[in-house]
Amino acid sequence: MRRVAKRMSETFNLGVLDLVPRLNDATAEQALQQSVTLAQHAEAWGYARYWTSEHHDMAELASASPEVLLSHIGARTTTIQLGSGAVLLPHYSPLKVAESFRLLAALYPGRIELGLGRAPGGGPHATMALSGNYLQHVSKLPESIAALTELLEDRYTYEDHPVTARPIPQLPLSLWMLGTNVKSAEFAARFGMGYVFGQFMSDADGTEAVRRYREGFIPSATMKKPEVMVAISVLCAESEADALDWSREMAERRKAEGKERSTERSTSSIEVSRTNDAASADPNEEARHYAGTAEKVWDRLQQVSRKLDTDRLLLVTAGPDYERRLDSYRLLADYKTAIGK
């Protein structure tokens, strides 16, 4: 397993983005245990990172606090990078975010990646219950990012008095911005952060956002050159027919669930992965979700890698059940090993 992990990380940097879905009426406890299982297997199969999301009052997802789940998973893994995809900064004090993730970085040295998002992460009532006037908070996001950056670089002051986010880890954590448009890319460039393009929830292919990010990048104390990741929805199976059938099943299930919820949908930074519903009239659906054999999915990933000039991909696999979700990640890792790249 260690040889496989080394080979993968040296050539193509694959990671897991786990939305912590409650599949097939699983309890929250079961969904969270499945996330631990996924992270442990991903580490053994050579995946470079495990990231998890933040959502609020969404019945189908079980993770509202990435830092809590990452602490739990960190204690049950040994080497895999751990990250948030994403902490929704408009809701929180920059000092509290810096303290929480510096604590994680001290617990798991060299393994912590702090990904930020700027969307509400839930419906309007949950958003207001969490932090009040969200639009007012998001309008102040540049100031919040600046404060967080200063805190992570130990140069923050409040009323001209130094304030330090403690504990101070020996190895600093990396800072990333997640998004689907040019605005998020510009924030990442301006503050010297890495940029994660959420292809699986965007109609765009990312080329313009990534271009603007690279052209506008200003080096920071923690990141000297632009770094790009892409989050992509995939589902691998032994046969292409199975992968397409399961993707259609997942899409139909989410459509039915959507009718039961309020017609006002969440605009989360990391939404439930959209799938390749063959019956869908949306011409962009196939670009958001790659379904098929490991070979076919691998070819699509290679295309994205070349187009956006990055070898760092975060893979989102939502189901259709936990066993087949795990198999999807395994099949791709096995294929990667078999072709020896």
Rank of each mutant, 00 (worst) to 15 (best):
M1C: 11
V4H: 10
K6S: 13
R7P: 02
M8V: 15
N13V: 03
L14R: 00
L17A: 09
D18V: 04
L19Q: 02
V20A: 14
R22Q: 12
R22W: 11
L23E: 05
N24C: 12
D25N: 13
T27M: 12
A28C: 10
Q30F: 07
A42Y: 05
A44S: 12
Y50V: 02
Y50D: 01
S53K: 05
A59R: 13
L61G: 08
A62C: 08
A64D: 13
E67W: 00
L70E: 02
L70M: 07
H72P: 04
I73V: 12
A75D: 06
G83Q: 04
G85L: 01
G85A: 12
A86I: 11
V87D: 00
Y92K: 10
P94V: 04
K96V: 06
A98I: 09
A105P: 00
L107R: 05
P109I: 12
R111P: 03
E113P: 00
E113G: 00
A119M: 06
G122Y: 01
G123C: 00
A129C: 07
G132W: 08
N133A: 14
N133M: 05
N133H: 15
S139Y: 06
K140M: 12
P142D: 11
E143P: 04
S144Q: 15
I145A: 06
I145K: 04
A147R: 04
A147I: 04
A147Q: 14
L148Y: 01
T149Y: 05
E150Q: 15
E150M: 14
E153S: 09
E153T: 11
D154W: 07
Y158E: 10
E159S: 14
T164L: 11
A165M: 08
P167Q: 05
P167N: 08
P169R: 07
L175N: 02
L178A: 05
G179T: 01
T180S: 15
N181E: 07
A185Y: 04
E186T: 14
E186Y: 06
F187G: 01
F187N: 08
G194N: 11
G194M: 06
F197R: 02
F200D: 03
F200I: 05
D205L: 04
R211G: 15
R212N: 07
R212G: 02
R214E: 02
A221D: 11
M223V: 07
E227M: 12
V228A: 09
V230Q: 02
A231F: 02
I232M: 09
A237G: 15
E238G: 05
E240D: 14
A241Q: 14
L244D: 02
L244G: 01
D245C: 03
S247D: 10
R248L: 09
A251R: 02
E252F: 03
R253G: 00
K255W: 07
G258W: 12
G258V: 09
G258H: 09
K259I: 03
R265N: 08
V272Y: 04
S273D: 08
D282V: 10
Y290R: 10
G292I: 01
T293I: 15
E295F: 09
W298R: 07
D299C: 13
L301I: 07
L301Y: 08
Q303T: 14
V304L: 09
S305G: 08
L308V: 10
L308D: 10
R312T: 15
L315V: 08
D321L: 14
D321S: 15
E323W: 02
E323I: 07
S328K: 03
Y329K: 15
Y335V: 06
A338F: 07
I339T: 06
K341R: 13
